[in-house]
């Protein structure tokens, strides 16, 4: 096999893995603060991607404008989703609220997928924006790949500083580590949970546009993304950005290599296989990077 093909697949894997990591960031923040497994999280990316693709087809907006338009919509959606459907469940006893949140988030996943398919059609969509490409030897790199990588890196760095330098970011970390400890510092717990849902959804809005720029999206792809994001959180540690990024890149590259050396149809399954192998081989876990 020529080395150029390998490098090409590697680049694609890094790109995909970085996007997985962005999805995992939001999921991890939400789980850390709200202690809810949001099964609808990946589906938000699918819906956002389809919406971005339709908006691009209609108005040819620049991807940056697509992101800026999608963020407020997702913020409002995330906030309402928690306040309207999940917060009322907290008044129930532990069993009912646990089962209830699974039902609500899985229900939302199904409804969002079907609704999107009904409104926009079930076919795959993308943002057919043509970028220039350049060549290094035999390797062809599209500028879109460069921009997406830059976007992923920028967002990760921004999130890192956000979680350390702002009151809201520090409160997210504090609630994740000890919610009662945060409460007695004066952190308003239900307001914090709604805000984190909104914030996690906003990250998905960015990821959705970046994703749709180089990979096709369809209304039913969300659950697969959610599973990968859960895998990343387990590998990288809850609330650990660097760990999630490394785990995401590892997963993306592993998928690419599976397609290359084995069969492309096995690529989506590799995350689950890897997760099982790692859980068996390292039952006590291992840490990537510094835990925050």
């Amino acid at each position: 096999m020529p080395i150029e093909v390998l490098i090409q697949v590697l680049i694609g894997g890094v790109l995909l893995g970085g996007l997985y990591a962005l999805v995992a960031f939001g999921l991890s923040l939400i789980y850390g603060v709200v202690r809810i497994l949001n099964f609808a999280h990946g589906t938000l990316l699918a819906v956002g991607g389809v919406a971005a693709s339709l908006a691009y087809a209609a108005w040819q907006w620049h991807p940056v404008w697509l992101i800026l338009a999608l963020i407020p919509i997702f913020v409002v959606f995330g906030w309402l989703f928690y306040r309207g459907l999940l917060q009322p469940l907290e008044k129930r006893n532990h069993f009912e609220s646990t089962v209830g949140t699974v039902l609500v988030t899985v229900g939302a996943l199904l409804m969002l997928s079907d609704l999107t398919a009904k409104l926009a059609g079930p076919t795959q969509k993308n943002i057919p924006l043509r970028f220039e490409s350049f060549e290094i030897g035999e390797i062809i790199i599209s500028m879109s790949q460069v921009w997406i990588l830059a976007g992923i890196a920028l967002l990760t760095i921004a999130m890192h500083f956000f979680l350390r330098r702002t009151w809201f970011g520090n409160a997210i970390r504090a609630v994740t580590q000890d919610s009662v400890g945060a409460q007695i510092c004066g952190v308003h717990s239900s307001r914090m949970k709604a805000a984190t849902f909104a914030f996690g959804s906003a990250i998905v809005a960015v990821a959705a546009v970046l994703y749709t720029l180089s990979f096709p999206v369809d209304p039913y792809m969300g659950f697969g993304l959610t599973v990968k994001a859960f895998t990343i959180i387990i590998l990288g540690g809850i609330g650990n950005l660097l760990g999630a990024l490394l785990a995401g890149l590892f997963l993306g590259v592993a998928e690419g290599m599976t397609g290359l050396f084995w069969k492309p149809e096995w690529a989506p399954a590799i995350s689950v296989i890897l997760l099982l192998l790692i859980l068996v081989a390292f039952p006590n876990g291992f840490r990537i990077g510094k835990r925050q």
Partner: peptide
């Protein structure tokens, strides 16, 4: 409140 068990943010 200085709570029972301290309730610090141990990873901060």
């Amino acid at each position: 409140l200085v709570p029972e068990g301290r309730r610090l943010f141990t990873q901060m």
